[in-house]
Each structure stands twice: as C-alpha cells, then as structure tokens.
C-alpha cells in the first residue's frame, strides 16, 4: 500500500475544481477562453490557493502536460537573481509549440526577493514579454515594488472561510472512510486560521493517530508545533539562563530550527495569553526580538544572537519579578 500526502492528493487540478476564490477563478477562466493572460500577481496569506490556482490555470491552458510550458521558480529557494535570470533566459529562448503563443514563468514567494532583485526581475519581464507571462505569488503585496505591481494584474486571495474549509475536510473524510467529528473539523479550521494546506495536514496527521476527535487534533498540533519554545522563554524569564540555553540547543537539534524560525516562534509566543507576563514586558521583549531578528538577517550567528536574547529575558525577568 502506498499513500499520498493529502495536500497533494486533494489539490484541485483544474480551475473548475477550485472551490473558493470564486471571482478570481471566474476571471481566470475568461483568460483561458481567450487563450491569453497578462502578467499576474497572486497575493494573499499562505494556504489560500495561489500556487494551486496558477497550476490549475496552466493545466486548463495547455492540458495534462502543462508543466513543460511552465517554469516554476521559488524565490525563497533561489535567492540569487543571477540564477533566476539564467533559468528564465534559457526557458524563454526555446520555441513555443502548441496553440497558446506564450509560456508561463511561475515565480513563487516573490516577496522574498530584495528590491534590487525585483528591479532585475522587472527588466526580465519586459525583455521576454513577447513569449512569456509571469505569474508571481506573494504573501505581502506591499513587499512587491510598484513597477512590478503596475505591470501585473493583481489578484487578492483571501483566507478561507469556515464554510469552505469544513465541507472540504468532510469530503476528504468521506473519501478516506474516516470517522470525523464535526466539532473536530471546526477545531482544525480554527487552528489553521484559514490556511487550507495546514488544515489538510492536521487532518491527515490526526487520522494517522486514530479517530479524528477534538482531543487528537489538539494533540497533533501540539506535537507539530513544539511547546519547548514557551518553556525556553519561561526558563529564561525565571533567571535560569543555562537551562534556557540548553533548551534552545535541544530545539535546534531536534526540530532542526534555524535561528530565524526560533525568533519568529518566540515572537508569536510572547503575545500568547498562555504566557502570563505583564503587558509592558511583552512589548519590551518584542522590541528586542525584532532587533535580534534584524541581526540574524544581517548574517550573524544563530546561537550567539539567541543567547543574547535569552540573557536579556533573564535580566528583564528579574526586573519585572516574573
């Protein structure tokens, strides 16, 4: 027996299968009918279908073998504009066959590109616009430079609603012959914050653990998103720097987290109501967390930066008598 990840298995293949983002899908279907698309920017939170819709669109345009007409790049993985330039150049050079007169460059997570790289990208878009169309996806459209935005048709994807997510999860449960409590599916929706990918991942992991109940759902999410971060924060605030540092090291080994992963999760944690600390302390910690994140991005060493952060927590913890 072999088993697909459901995120792959239940991914819509065609625009017709896409259940939400109705207005966007309608307009895209018109493009397909006209056999022409503009450059596009798909903006919206994670797990709302940006990449899926791009693939479905390409599928509808070119048919089953659409991937040969599409260059898929990911800005998070290929940060060097040089790499992107070379690949686009090569891809654009080859002739277009078939009835559609252009090929598609899908550049995922384009908001991870520096503005310099985006400037270079803009020139690429102009240079090859005769036979290529660019589809960019981004979580934050504001991080895409204006000249690119103005060259693109911008589509805003919104977080999925409960009415979209729960029925879809129910459909999956039926298809997989699973017992799923309605309440459990609602909890999945709440925990995934309108992110379909995450909702499906939680569902599949819960199913692997047994019957999908509220309890199991919470357990899965707890396992996947470690609490150690909170424990580390609490240890540091209690003045136990050495133990906190040990925890940090464990986290980085067990979960393979990078310094950035850790500080981002810390940032989420400090505003969690489960962490009982004074409100003004939250703000002070957030401020220093931001500074540390900035230093990490500047190319500094993960552990040293986070140790500085933990040492700061130990000091603040004492001042605030946490």
């Amino acid at each position: 027996m072999s088993e697909l990840l459901w995120a792959e298995k239940y991914r819509p293949k065609t625009l017709d299968e896409v259940i939400n983002q109705k207005e966007i899908v309608e307009r895209l279907k018109k493009f397909v009918a006209e056999r022409n698309i503009p450059h596009m920017l798909f903006a919206g939170p994670p797990g709302t279908g940006k990449t899926t819709v791009a693939h479905a669109l390409a599928h509808d345009l070119y048919g089953e073998n659409y991937r040969q007409y599409m260059l898929e790049l990911n800005a998070s993985d290929e940060r060097k504009i040089e790499v992107i330039r070379t690949k686009v150049k090569e891809f654009a050079r080859s002739k277009v066959v078939g009835e559609v007169g252009f090929k598609i460059v899908l550049l995922d997570e384009a908001d991870n590109m520096t503005s310099d790289a985006q400037q270079a990208l803009r020139r690429l878009m102009e240079l090859y616009s005769a036979n290529t169309r660019f589809i960019l996806t981004a979580n934050y459209p504001s991080k895409i430079i204006e000249p690119i935005q103005s060259r693109c048709a911008v589509f805003r994807f919104t977080a999925l609603k409960k009415e979209d997510v729960v029925p879809r999860l129910q459909y999956i449960c039926q298809n997989e012959n699973l017992k799923c409590r309605e309440r459990a599916l609602e909890v999945i929706y709440e925990l995934s914050e309108g992110d379909m990918r995450r909702a499906i991942n939680i569902l599949q992991s819960a199913a692997a653990l047994g019957e999908v109940t509220e309890e199991v759902v919470y357990k899965v999410v707890g396992l996947a998103h470690p609490r150690e971060i909170r424990e580390m924060i609490q240890l540091a605030l209690a003045g136990n720097f050495l133990e906190a540092r040990k925890k940090l090291r464990d986290l980085m080994i067990t979960y393979g987290l990078s310094g950035l992963d850790v500080i981002k999760q810390v940032h989420r944690e400090i505003f969690s109501s489960d962490l009982k600390i004074p409100e003004d302390l939250r703000v002070m910690i957030a401020d220093y967390a931001g500074e540390i994140q900035f230093r990490l991005v500047e190319g500094a060493d993960d552990e040293i930066q986070l140790n500085a952060f933990l040492a700061r927590l130990a000091l603040l913890g004492r001042k605030f008598k946490v």
């Binding site: 990840l5 995120a7 792959e8 991914r11 994670p46 797990g47 990449t51 899926t52 693939h55 898929e72 990911n74 800005a75 998070s76 993985d77 995922d108 997570e109 990918r197 995450r198 991942n201 939680i202 599949q204 992991s205 692997a208 653990l209 899965v220 396992l223 996947a224 998103h225 979960y255 393979g256 992963d261």
Partner: peptide, 25 residues
C-alpha cells in the same frame, strides 16, 4: 518541494512537522 508544488521553506515549516507526527506515531 516539487511534488507538493511549493518551496523548500514551506515544506520545512508546514509539512515536515506533520510528517514527524505521522512517522513517530
């Protein structure tokens, strides 16, 4: 990444934690 049509970063953040849950349970 390629099978799931997403970035390596997303695989690391959104898939691997759940894979670990499944693989260890």
């Amino acid at each position: 990444a390629s099978r799931l049509l997403t970035s390596k970063a997303t695989v690391k953040a959104e898939f691997i934690p759940y894979l670990r849950v499944i693989f260890t349970n």
